[in-house]
């Protein structure tokens, strides 16, 4: 395991003072060869979280069939510690949005997300969940669940194969192990002033109200623009 201990500034609480303990990677390596296991709280914490991510039993369309296949013996998601699909959002860490999110279903998806305890993660699985997919030009399909909740991993495909879902899962595990408990770049749920619940859209006369969470949407839009190297038309936003 690499990356133990990073230098941090401004330690005032208990967690931060502990995480300040740094250790030389080589020394750690040497110690482990001698039978002494050293770790940091952060590493231990992330290891625990990433090795027992419990997904929510939540299928919306045909992608759910691939998700089920992934969890069964042939693909065996249990190898990654994620075989326990929980039927209650209160016991789940990961929401796999597997399928078409209709506008009628979207408020329930957001409500389920809000009911999950922190830390929580979202995988948007398949073309529909990430953008509306083949139904994008229809009248009743949400054009991507990231309009309402923060998505950690997007998987394209229609539907994505189990290997793709496992790849997304491993990507998520990497993301979890890279998260720090302290510092400015710590994840959202460790910021006391950041929301853990997101506004549930209402059924309007012609569309969902609001049609997107503007705060979330601007972040996505900004990232997409940066990825395309087109920063010039950002002035109109925010």
């Amino acid at each position: 395991m690499t990356g133990c201990g990073k230098s941090r500034q401004g330690s005032s609480n208990f967690l931060e003072s502990r995480a300040d303990v740094t250790m030389d990677a080589e020394l750690k390596d040497e110690l482990s060869r001698q039978g002494i296991f050293t770790t940091t709280l952060e590493e231990l914490y992330n290891w625990g979280r990433r090795s027992s991510v419990w997904p929510l039993t939540f299928g919306l369309a045909c992608c759910a069939i691939e998700m089920i296949a992934t969890s069964m013996a042939r693909y065996d998601l249990a190898r990654f510690g994620a075989e326990v699909f929980r039927p209650s959002p209160r016991q789940a860490d990961l929401m796999i949005v597997a399928g078409t999110v209709t506008k009628k279903m979207a408020p329930q998806v957001v409500r389920l997300y809000n009911q999950m305890p922190e830390p929580k993660y979202v995988i948007a699985m398949g073309a529909c969940a990430i953008s509306g997919g083949p139904f994008k030009q229809g009248y009743n399909v949400l054009k991507g669940i990231d309009r309402y909740i923060p998505v950690d991993v997007h998987i394209p495909g229609c539907p994505p194969r189990p290997e793709a879902l496992m790849d997304a899962f491993i990507t998520l595990q990497k993301k979890i192990s890279a998260q720090s408990l302290t510092g400015a770049d710590r994840p959202r749920y460790l910021h006391a002033d950041e929301p853990s619940e997101f506004p549930v859209p209402e059924y309007g006369a012609h569309d969902l109200e609001p049609p997107k969470n503007v705060k979330l949407w601007n972040i996505i839009y900004k990232k997409a623009n940066e990825a395309r190297g087109a920063g010039e038309d950002e002035s109109g936003r925010d």
């Binding site: 054009k143 006369a205 012609h206």
Partner: peptide, 20 residues
């Protein structure tokens, strides 16, 4: 299929979908 309180009839030819 649509929710109560929805006012339009989406399969009518003059239906205007919300632009998102």
């Amino acid at each position: 299929l649509m929710w109560d309180g929805f006012e339009d009839h989406p399969m009518r030819k003059d239906y205007v979908e919300p632009n998102d």
